[in-house]
Nucleic acid binder design. Sequence first.
DNA 1: GCATCATATGACAATACCATCATGTGTCAA
DNA 2: TTGACACATGATGGTATTGTCATATGATGC
Lengths: 110, 110
Amino acid sequence: MMVLSYDASVMKTNTTLEALTLFYKLLANESRLSILLALRDGEDNVAGICGRTGLSQTLVSHQLAVLHRSDVVRSRRDGRRTFYALADKHIDIIVGFALDHLAEKEVGHE
Amino acid sequence: MMVLSYDASVMKTNTTLEALTLFYKLLANESRLSILLALRDGEDNVAGICGRTGLSQTLVSHQLAVLHRSDVVRSRRDGRRTFYALADKHIDIIVGFALDHLAEKEVGHE
DNA sequence: GCATCATATGACAATACCATCATGTGTCAA
DNA sequence: TTGACACATGATGGTATTGTCATATGATGC
């Protein structure tokens, strides 16, 4: 049973194929991807992310929880707010990379 | 309604976010990813892919159809056989890239 | 403490996806 | 043309995922 959300500490027991699939599953949702793209511009709190993505607070919190459980984003509390950021440069690079290549492919199709 | 399978010709009307999501959805399944990883070694026919992935013929055909509809793989008929290959280097590069970074991240977690 | 702000969590209906079984189609050899 | 081979397709049951509503939790100021 493959589940979207997984505990990062379990990942070592997964095969590479499973790990890679889980990783892509995280990116394979418009809400989550939208959040990640927003975070490429730098860290932001939940309200800020809601504003920038147009998603509801509940949805953003849910998806941030998913992304956080999988160590894709990290969180930092500041008073009542929680700021989220991409956990490392990998996500940033990988998403950017795919975007570039997708764009390139689009052009190629014209 | 976001659907995994989409007609590649429709993609121009999608936003970048949608297109990127659809792209990742294609990779977010263990069977498809397994097929794509197999095809990184070069083109192969359905039976060959079944052998290398351990997946059933029906499943492989189904997933190849999905990947083909989205222009991720291309097909070539040779007699009774159909050979499939990655449509371009993008997929190869992107998957390899994610694999490398995932590996790197794993090491970082030790 | 109490109200409020900011975020998190639980439960759930709707939907999407997956893998399988059964069957269909196209190709070749005899 | 028939049979076997190689692959494709349709239908379907089971399951996973999605987004929403309602509600809970934690922090701050008064």
